[in-house]
Design a protein around this nucleic acid. Structure first.
Lengths: 120, 120
DNA sequence: ACCGAGTATTCCCCTCTGGATATATACGCG
DNA sequence: CGCGTATATATCCAGAGGGGAATACTCGGT
């Protein structure tokens, strides 16, 4: 899943996806649309393919690429709990209350009286 | 918006966000939870702060960080049209039909009868 | 005022990655 | 079967970015 975010971090790759989202396209189309060299586009497509974000279909010499949405569900899933934050179910005030010392949510291995020598 | 994706590409930064999503925390907590050096965490927090993904509250020497969800809406918005793809409204078959030559959706500057000399 | 806790900043190293150029490969056509 | 088209791969380069160590800054306590 981490891989998906790293792949999407690249602007040109997102542009490629945005183009392929409309319709499947050959590499040449993408090269013309992006304004970068053909090898660069091919390299991006390779990365996208290995991340499962696109798939290829061969048509003579041309390779027609299309989007695969499945990996994006992982992004959607990661986003989900944050959506709940801004959807009013849990606003800033409530989150602030959750951090009061009497409750002590404590996700990490944290003892309150010592520090900074266990992980060194 | 591109900045948000680049910031989220870093695994430790996503971990930080996941921790802060539960409750606001001081830097020391994050250092212990992540297992990287304190300067590294501070640097990530700086990046997150400049991207608007977290905000700080000073409490004596400690800095309490919390999540700001607003930039994540941009990610959510980018994801939106893709969600429609996998939500059945538009599946692979339909998208394939959208690429038939008679319709010619054509997002880029593309004439159907000539190629590969306009952008060279 | 000094000290220690907590955090930010600086500097350096090193890896990773995107881009371009050059080359290889696959395919259709005459 | 040689040629042009379409795409992939190889190689090199430069810049960006993450990590750590050392250091600076800030604040509260005594």
């Amino acid at each position: 899943m981490a891989a998906v975010f790293e792949v999407l971090a690249e602007p040109n790759r997102r542009r490629i996806l945005d183009l392929l989202r409309v319709a499947e396209r050959p590499v040449g189309d993408l090269v013309a649309a992006l304004g970068v060299s053909q090898p660069a586009v091919s390299k991006h497509l390779r990365v996208l393919r290995e991340a499962g974000l696109v798939e290829v279909r061969t048509d003579a010499q041309r390779r027609l690429y299309r989007v695969r949405t499945e990996p994006l569900r992982a992004v959607d899933a990661w986003l989900e709990p944050y959506r709940e934050l801004w959807s009013g179910r849990l606003d800033d005030l409530e989150r602030h209350l959750g951090t009061m010392p009497d409750t002590e949510p404590d996700t990490g291995p944290r003892r309150p009286t010592e520090e900074s020598s266990d992980e060194r």
